[in-house]
């Protein structure tokens, strides 16, 4: 598999939890979940740190639901996580 194809397959795992492309290329695929956990947890933590009052007001469960929906719909496109919370307000508005 070319490096470009391998990285596209890895991206599909991170974003869509689709391991059909990447798992067969690995010596042992069990470590894959660490990467998906890192990806989602860092984005969710970024949103909760940027919106502490919203988190307190909505409660953890509702906030995490909204954050998870945002992570699914808006993969990060900036080199810095500082930019990631931009746009979360629109997701919140769409839900409530």
């Amino acid at each position: 598999m070319s490096l470009a194809a391998s990285q596209a397959a890895f991206q599909a795992w991170l974003q869509q939890a689709d391991d059909a492309g990447i798992a067969p290329t690995l010596a042992d695929p069990r470590g894959l979940s660490v990467y998906q956990n890192n990806y989602r947890v860092s984005l969710m933590a970024c949103l909760s740190e940027a919106f502490p009052h919203t988190l307190a007001w909505l409660g953890a469960e509702a906030f995490e639901g909204a954050a998870a929906r945002h992570v699914d719909a808006h993969p990060p496109r900036s080199f810095t996580l500082d930019a990631y919370p931009q746009g979360f307000v629109e997701t919140l508005r769409a839900i409530w």
Partner: peptide
């Protein structure tokens, strides 16, 4: 990063000549 997608995680490389 791949194209516009930024993972914000240190993702592994195959250790190949390519």
């Amino acid at each position: 990063r791949l194209g516009a997608f930024q993972s914000h995680d240190l993702l592994p490389l195959p250790y190949t000549a390519e």
